[in-house]
């Protein structure tokens, strides 16, 4: 039972990290209809900047802020310099241009920070365990990630549902032309949303960094996982991103925990351990296939998007 609770917490932590990446991505998709493969690179930029600043100052909070700001600035540059030219282009060219960005970013961080991976240490005040249950200590830092994820989703919910900007975002999702007609500066709105999404990706990069070796290409994996989240949850839907992220986080963690045991019923333990670990990697994609079969537009996707 303790194992189940601990693994569920691990799954939630993974899920909420994923949420920070995919929430920004889904908003960008939803409002701008732009496919951005470089979103994972913004995650990477956040982690690298945090590792650099954290390494220089030893201050986690400073590293956190720098990571978010670094990713947001990188996002701004990308939006102003490139994405803006792609709004009216076919998705193919968005894919290509942002894939080019991925190649450039992965090499650029190597050129700037070298091949040796960096690390980010968790802040001292969270570097301890909290007894979740008697006999089950759990790292405080991982609980803090879950809390951060909840804060992010609440913030985004309020932003989209309760503010004027959110109103434009909601309107822009369905009636793109109308928003412009109301005199809203659509370009500025796009840039803003893009920067917020980039900052969130950077935030995810920083909070996940203590469990990562910060190296070139770390964002790619999260990028693809976010795509799966969005396919499962539905484009443009925050609710979809939330449910999708948590489903995938839990599916992945549980599969990794219990599949080897399950396989162990049929084959010898060594084989079961290796095969189970490998098949567990594919588990989240099985979730995606099921959703695609049942609801091609995702769980909460707009029917006509």
């Amino acid at each position: 039972m303790n194992l189940f609770i601990e693994q569920t917490l691990n799954g939630l932590q993974l899920g909420f990290t994923l949420l920070m990446v995919s929430a920004g991505l889904t908003l960008i998709f939803g409002i701008m209809n732009i496919i951005n493969l470089a979103h994972g690179s913004l995650f990477m930029v956040g982690a690298f900047v945090a590792a650099d600043v954290g390494g220089r100052t030893g201050n986690y909070l400073l590293a956190l802020l720098a990571g978010i700001a670094g990713a947001a600035v990188a996002g701004l540059i990308v939006e102003l310099g490139l994405i803006r030219r792609l709004y009216h282009r076919d998705h193919l060219y968005q894919v290509l241009a942002t894939f080019a960005l991925v190649l450039i970013a992965n090499q650029a961080v190597q050129m700037i920070w070298g091949l040796t991976p960096r690390s980010v240490s968790a802040p001292a005040f969270l570097d301890r365990t909290v007894p979740v249950l008697p006999g089950l200590p759990y790292p405080a830092y991982r609980l803090a990630i879950i809390a951060t994820g909840i804060a992010v989703i609440v913030f985004l919910h309020l932003l989209v549902e309760r503010t004027r900007v959110g109103m434009w975002i909601r309107a822009g999702r369905t009636h793109r032309e109308l928003v412009g007609a109301f005199g809203v500066n659509v370009r500025l709105l796009y840039t803003l949303v893009f920067a917020v999404g980039a900052g969130l990706a950077g935030l995810a990069g920083v909070v996940a960094a203590p469990f990562l070796s910060v190296e070139s290409g770390i964002g790619d994996h999260f990028l693809i996982l976010s795509f799966v989240v969005i396919v499962v949850g539905g484009i443009g839907s925050l609710k979809g991103a939330l449910y999708g992220s948590l489903m995938l986080g839990l599916a992945d963690t549980w599969a990794r925990t219990y599949l080897p045991d399950l396989f162990g019923q049929f084959v010898d333990p060594s084989t079961a351990a290796t095969a189970g670990a490998s098949v567990a990697s594919a588990s989240i994609y099985l979730v995606m296939v099921v959703v695609l079969v049942v609801k091609p537009n995702g769980l909460f996707g707009l029917a006509d998007e």
Binding site: N2, Q7, L14, R142, F211, L212, R256, A273
Partner: peptide, 22 residues
């Protein structure tokens, strides 16, 4: 008692650690 194999290059060991605890 148990052999735990993780992905080569993995950096997050929370799940393996939970299995050790168990």
């Amino acid at each position: 008692d148990e052999e735990i194999y993780t992905e080569l290059g993995a950096t997050d060991y929370a799940q393996a650690i939970a299995q050790i605890r168990e």
